[in-house]
Design a protein around this nucleic acid. Structure first.
Length: 268
DNA sequence: CCATGAACCTGGTCGC
DNA sequence: TGCGACCAGGTTCATG
């Protein structure tokens, strides 16, 4: 399911209810859901299992405790929300709180994982800057592109270069800045790179404002779901008319991913 | 360093 | 209605 805006949306909607809660039991329904630990390890490390903070880094939901963090990655179909009764089909994990509330991690495709770390160091090592963070300047972005001689879409999807973009928002950002997804990163002119930088931030901010995109089955809490799908310009629009150049949107494969673009996007 | 394809999973859709 | 092929918002690993 989720890219940066969807993960941010999940955080925004459960954060306040999570902070201050104390975990009393962590239950794996799908055996692999806790990637690098078992329930007992969590409680061994966290004599105090009270949640101090909840936020996002890259596509991870970060739950912070005094002595460690839980990082949750939703992968393709993960959903995280407070239980509304009976555990639904495809529940991968349950988190029980002292208050008797239950957090459900539901994940049809079972790719989603919980990670237990001492702090954010490991995740920071493996991930590039936050596209909406202060450190993500136009010049830093230009340097990333110039130092790689690489397919631009593959680069945008590479979490170690820039954290948080996925297939939808990569296509949307490239379209908005008029760059063909098969362009080579170090051949894109500086001004156009700056435009892409701007497009990425614009697309992500707007998507967060709309609570993310709804495609197929994404919904985050209480049956609510984002409505950024109404704002998409290129993703999923194969055969429809591009609002910019009035020609038909084309779908091809780039970096092994379904990729939408139109002829008004220039190849560099 | 970069590209590609398979693997991890289930379910929806499309064509015949 | 049924069935197989293909596709899906992500990441990691092996191979060339």
């Amino acid at each position: 399911m989720p890219e940066l805006p969807e993960v941010q949306t999940v955080v925004n909607h459960i954060k306040d209810e999570l902070i201050g809660e104390t975990i009393v039991e962590l239950k794996a329904i799908w055996p692999k859901v806790f990637h690098n630990f078992e329930s007992v390890d969590f409680f061994k490390k966290n004599s105090d299992a009270k949640i101090l903070d909840v936020n996002r880094r890259a596509k991870f939901i970060i739950i912070r405790f005094k002595h460690s963090i839980l990082a949750i990655h939703l992968r393709m179909t993960g959903k995280l929300y407070f239980s509304k009764g009976k555990a639904p089909k495809h529940t991968s994990a349950k988190v029980f709180f002292k208050s008797k509330k239950i957090l459900i991690f539901q994940d049809v495709r079972k790719f989603g994982r919980f990670y237990l770390y001492r702090n954010l160091n490991k995740i920071n090592e493996l991930h590039g800057p936050e596209p909406l963070g202060e450190k993500f300047t136009k010049n830093i972005f230009f340097n990333i592109l110039i130092n790689c001689k690489r397919n631009i879409k593959a680069l945008l999807l590479d979490q170690s270069k820039i954290a948080g973009l996925g297939n939808i928002y990569a296509d949307e950002s490239l379209w908005l800045s008029g760059i063909h997804p098969n362009s080579i990163s170090n051949k894109i002119p500086k001004g156009t790179v700056y435009k892409l930088h701007n497009s990425i931030q614009h697309v992500l901010n707007k998507a967060i404002k709309h609570n993310g995109t709804t495609i197929i089955d994404f919904s985050y809490v209480n049956g609510q779901s984002g409505n950024y799908a109404n704002e998409l310009n290129i993703y999923g629009k194969k055969g429809l008319i591009c609002s910019n150049c009035k020609t038909e949107v084309i779908k091809i494969k780039v970096a092994s991913r379904g990729t939408y673009f139109c002829r008004c996007q220039k190849v560099y």
